[in-house]
Simulated assay, not measured.
Amino acid sequence: MPTYTTDHSSSVLQTHSWRTASNSAAYLLPHIQPNMHILDIGCGPGTITLDLATRIPQGHITGVENTASPLDSARTLAHAQNLTNVDFQVADIHALPFADNSFDIVHVHQVLQHIADPVQALREMRRVAKPHGGIVAARESASSTWYPDNDGIAAWLELTERMGKAKGGNPHPGRYIHVWAEQAGFARGSIRKSAGAWCFSSPEEREYWGGSMEGRFRSSGFAKMAVEEGYASVEELEVIARGWREWVEEEMGWFGLLHGEILCWK
């Protein structure tokens, strides 16, 4: 099993907590019905999960994560929003603890890139999706670009890709997740491919995105692992952190992240 290199530190959860169904799963929303049962895998702090819960008032959603650490916050947020059609539990995407044909929709967002066997994960997602209309939905990053040129951000991309591969992951696989889906048993004609993007350019957006990235390289499980396992020095991490801060303070700063998306019908 690979290590999830970005862990669930406060700076990481800051990034994940910005995510909603609207900004991270818009490709899926037209297919949601009010009485559906949904499985959200890799739910983290639960913000996408809870946004989906509001769209299925007669249904139910289960959010799962491979560790318990972010789930208390997710439950607290659900309670604060008075959402009762949701539950959270620990589960391994490679061997889901659910019966065959259990869910109308099985969803992942930026999960397949971090795991040991994404094809097996998609097989499991397919297994627990209902027949005759059940949907498996996945969205994974494909590529990043930014303005202006920034050596620290370039070093960030190189380091995160190198560590992800060394830990058994597949960094930025959005351009070929449909290939994995076919290998997992979905018929080619049942796979719908699309693309979506995030863009951060306003002062508030730059502070959110770049500030959280700066924090990751100053204090997080990722930073600790990078140094302890010899992927980078403290000084190299500081170059990356400063690069993100420089980008935040650049009035013309712009960052784009392209995602590949698939909807697969069982």
Rank of each mutant, 00 (worst) to 15 (best):
P34V: 08
P34D: 09
P34C: 05
N35S: 15
M36L: 15
H37Q: 14
I38C: 03
I38V: 14
D40T: 08
D40S: 09
I41A: 07
I41K: 04
I41E: 00
C43K: 07
C43D: 02
C43E: 00
C43S: 15
G44Q: 03
P45T: 07
G46S: 08
T47F: 11
T47Q: 13
T49D: 01
L50G: 02
L52Q: 04
A53E: 01
A53N: 01
T54Q: 14
T54R: 15
P57V: 05
Q58Y: 08
G59K: 06
G59P: 06
H60D: 00
I61Q: 11
T62H: 09
T62C: 12
V64P: 10
E65L: 08
E65V: 04
A68F: 09
S69P: 00
D72F: 07
S73D: 14
S73Q: 15
A74Q: 01
R75T: 05
R75I: 12
A78G: 02
A78L: 09
A80E: 09
A80L: 14
Q81V: 02
Q81A: 08
Q81C: 04
N82E: 03
L83E: 00
L83Q: 01
L83M: 13
T84L: 14
T84Q: 14
V86M: 08
D87V: 05
Q89N: 11
V90I: 12
V90M: 11
A91H: 03
A91F: 03
I93A: 12
I93N: 05
I93R: 00
I93F: 04
H94M: 08
A95T: 13
P97G: 10
F98M: 12
N101M: 11
N101P: 08
S102W: 11
S102R: 13
D104Y: 12
D104R: 09
I105R: 07
H107D: 10
H107M: 13
V108K: 02
V108M: 07
H109T: 06
H109F: 09
H109Y: 13
Q110I: 04
Q113D: 05
H114D: 10
I115E: 00
I115D: 00
P118H: 05
A121G: 06
L122E: 02
R123S: 10
R123C: 13
R123H: 14
E124F: 10
E124S: 13
R126C: 12
R127Q: 12
V128I: 14
V128L: 14
A129S: 15
G133W: 12
I135S: 07
V136S: 04
V136P: 05
A138Y: 03
R139Q: 10
E140S: 06
S141T: 06
S141F: 01
S141L: 03
S143N: 02
S144D: 03
S144W: 06
T145R: 10
W146D: 01
W146I: 00
W146H: 06
Y147D: 00
P148R: 01
N150L: 10
D151R: 15
I153Y: 08
I153V: 10
I153G: 02
A154V: 02
A155H: 13
E158N: 09
L159Y: 05
L159K: 05
E161F: 06
R162T: 15
R162G: 00
M163R: 12
G164D: 01
G164M: 10
K165N: 04
A166N: 06
K167Y: 10
K167Q: 15
G169C: 11
G169V: 05
N170F: 15
P171E: 07
H172D: 01
P173T: 03
G174V: 01
